[in-house]
Design a protein around this nucleic acid. Structure first.
Lengths: 198, 198, 198, 198
DNA sequence: GATGAATGAGAATTCATTCAT
DNA sequence: CATGAATGAATTCTCATTCAT
């Protein structure tokens, strides 16, 4: 089993570093986290980081992509069982908030730290985020074709609004003292949007 | 006649520096803007900045407070004429987006730069933002009392969702190539929420 | 009585500032004391300081000169009554240490702060200090002429040694926890030197 | 063969930096010496300094400790051959002044610069200096037990006085125009103290 | 004489990144 | 592949001093 291929070992190291990074970022924030701190947590030398990532910004970007990929996967699979767009909206809210709820460090990365990397905001194309938005928009489009959502609604604009709402509510949850009943909140919000979309 | 001269001059200087700062932040971002650049734009010496603000972070915080105060004022006044909560929601969206639309630099500061100051996110209480949220929540509460919004809705949670939606849509607008028809978008979004709230 | 001459008012202000300075220096040290702090303690504006002193260094130098002048005066007068050089040495030690003992802030200024001003050490001629040394040397010279001190002793070298001993012992006293019995110590030290000089 | 290489290299670098520092401090004084100037003289980058020392203050403190350690070593060894306390006092003066005489830069550091670092005076415990004083006091104590020094003398107080005298005389020597006959002066001073101690 | 707002030179330290081993 | 010592660019903030009022 040790006879791992080069690619496997590379992926293992990358994952090792990203896990160290997400923990570090969640604790101190992107700007205040030192590359050497990530290296320490990952159990590698400072220079080793640069064998797997081009820069500190690149770590954040990769982190987002890998994690968002997973989020997308989970949501995508779960929504296969849904019979209509309305149900898919409800499920989307429920899943997104439960994922964030179980992994607060990830929440930090998505809601806050992502906006702290200049490269991320100003230069990075952010394909995974676009995919998330596209997916949300497609659900709304489906609902319109199913005749349950109003046809004059702009799916892409609304997808953005939905993500913004989720993100902001999640961010608020991060700083809330007591654990928020995320599933009840998720339902409450999805009701609001579903109702609004009808 | 000398009365309030000192205070006036102080306020003038502060405004002068904040105006320089908002322009600089919008152009290069908070982290990449040098204090000396703000000083240059304001036409004062570097050290003078520190007679009016404690730190670079403090400039950002003050900037937010002063500008948000103005936004709140404008919205508050305009909404006095509204007959019911539903109209107030529509007006709120319309005004917020039109203000942002006319002052993209302000948009930058609110949507992006604010999240780039560690102090802002992790330490600052952000009273003006809280006021905005409280105000939104009060509109929803009014609507519930008026019997036009569902009573099981949580006004504070929904206020946050609304701000998140507005903020995200605004952020998207910043990077959009062609000028967005903000008033149409505002109406579209407020319809969504009003419908959802009913 | 208010009809003070210009010179009197000037001297009053200077004294006022020097008193503020000695207190501030003793508390925070020369380098860490801000000119504005001295102004605050003296109850004048920052700029006013510069009407009476050329620079921060100049305050320290003037402080030393004025205070050392007083010390010299006191010692000089007291030693007029002494019958021989030996007695004068004893009296010198006793007086110097008692003066320092009663005014620890002055001690700080003489023993420590004086060495912290570059100008003081490297450029300033320090006439009052020279006078103190000359005076000490003259006592030793007198003793030699009186036939009670060895003639092969170099009065100027020994004067310096005596001041160094006094200064170091005083410095140690500043950081000592319990009040040192300065008069006993003074006698003990003067015995040492008198015996050594014989 | 690799053994202790890292340690050796570290010590080499530290010595390299300290040597550069002592030269720079002697020339311009502690406060006026830039860290970048020390780096330049040591032939390393500015940042490298901070891999070996915590701060500029720390350089001064380390400098004192390393050099004082050497002084203590030399004096300690040389005094092993002395038959009695009196001889040891004479030797102590002779050696101290000859060491200082041969290395004026070291003299600067000990007599002047040390008093220019706030941390040094106000916070640093200064163990090596204490060791020097303890050693001097022990010589005096020995002399008392040998019956050649008066028993009523306080060894610690006198040790301080002796160091003060030596330090002050050394300081005077630094600013003297012509080279002082340090060995004659050392003997003259040690005679003074030995005589006084008897 | 007095004020105090404004100046602006000045410097220690950090830390992402590199590269010789 | 991995290391970690070395780099050096980069920037906020302080504070003695000035000078218009």
């Amino acid at each position: 089993m040790q006879s791992s291929t080069r690619k496997e070992r590379t992926q293992f190291r990358q994952r090792q570093i990203l896990d160290a990074a997400v923990a570090a970022f969640a604790e101190k924030g992107f700007y205040k986290t030192r590359v050497s701190e990530i290296a320490r947590r990952a159990g590698v030398a400072d220079g080793t980081i640069y064998l797997y990532f081009k820069s500190k910004d690149d770590i954040l970007i990769s982190l987002f992509e890998v994690r968002m990929e997973e989020v997308l996967q989970v949501i995508h699979e779960a929504l296969l069982d849904c019979t209509d767009a309305e149900q898919r909206i409800h499920e989307f809210f429920r899943l997104y908030m439960s994922i964030i709820d179980r992994d607060p460090a990830l929440a930090e990365v998505i809601t806050i730290e992502l906006r702290q990397s200049d490269k991320f905001i100003r230069e990075y194309e952010n394909p995974k985020f676009k995919e998330l938005l596209r997916y949300l928009a497609s659900i709304i489009g489906d609902g319109q074709r199913e005749g349950i959502f109003r046809s004059e609604i702009d799916p892409r604009l609304t997808a953005r609004a939905i993500f913004g709402a989720l993100d902001e509510v999640t961010l608020a949850g991060l700083f809330a003292k007591r654990p928020l009943e995320s599933s009840r909140m998720a339902r409450s919000l999805s009701e609001l949007f579903v109702q609004g979309l009808r």
